[in-house]
């Protein structure tokens, strides 16, 4: 990690070298927070995720001072909603991403982003277990880095800048249909990896 983790000196809570943590460890930690509130565990999750969440919020176009405040709100909700997290359903990063996304949109639009509800996660048939989620995350990360530039560009513009198909089309000066087919192609590759089909790296 390039930046010094914030709040490192608070109560000497952070003892572990954050850089040595694998992504599955974060899901384990969040999973244990889901079972029992624990400030030490929370602090470790905070030190890892708060700087990422802030980076995401800033890329969405929120001014720095507001981004700081919004990051704090998102990280508070990690504590408040932790009991709703199921490590077997999603990686910690996925769960925190959806919290950050929803709260950022709510903040920017002053409207709640319609959700199919985190509650319903528990009813969703998800076959992969926790360890598998993490392996998948690593493979998807590699796959994203290997998408053709035209495809990764539309993925980044969607996720990091929150741009609609129409907005991307006018920015890149290409037809709406081209934007959608690029997103579909990228999505198809990522889904193949998720489904465990053969994929040439």
């Amino acid at each position: 990690m390039k930046n010094r983790p914030p709040g490192e000196d608070v109560d000497n809570i952070v003892q572990l070298n954050q850089a040595e943590m694998a992504s599955s460890d974060w899901s384990d930690l969040l999973g244990s927070l889901a079972v029992k509130p624990d400030k030490h565990i929370y602090a470790r999750l905070f030190n890892h995720f708060a700087p990422k969440v802030k980076a995401y919020i800033v890329r969405l176009g929120v001014a720095l001072s507001a981004a700081e405040e919004l990051t704090q709100e998102v990280m508070l909700s990690v504590w408040r909603k932790a009991h709703m997290y199921h490590p077997e359903k999603a990686a910690a990063s996925t769960w925190i991403f959806t919290l950050a996304r929803n709260q950022s949109i709510d903040w920017m639009r002053k409207q709640k982003y319609p959700q199919y509800s985190l509650d319903e996660w528990s009813e969703t048939a998800s076959e992969s277990g926790q360890g598998e989620q993490e392996v998948l995350s690593d493979r998807v990360a590699r796959a994203i880095s290997q998408l053709p530039e035209k495809q990764s560009q539309v993925i980044y513009m969607s996720y990091f800048e929150g741009r609609s198909h129409g907005d991307i089309a006018s920015r890149l000066d290409i037809p709406l249909g081209s934007v959608k087919s690029r997103i579909r192609l990228a999505s198809e590759k990522l889904k193949q990896i998720w489904g465990g089909e053969e994929y040439e790296y």
Partner: peptide
């Protein structure tokens, strides 16, 4: 859910932004 997970992977890939030193203390 797969697309949400892509969001999670992308979140992890971001270069960290400095968060003020007292945010964690204030939350705790």
């Amino acid at each position: 859910e797969i697309n949400d997970a892509v969001g999670g992977v992308l979140l992890e890939s971001l270069e960290s932004e400095t968060v003020s030193d007292d945010m964690l203390a204030s939350i705790l």
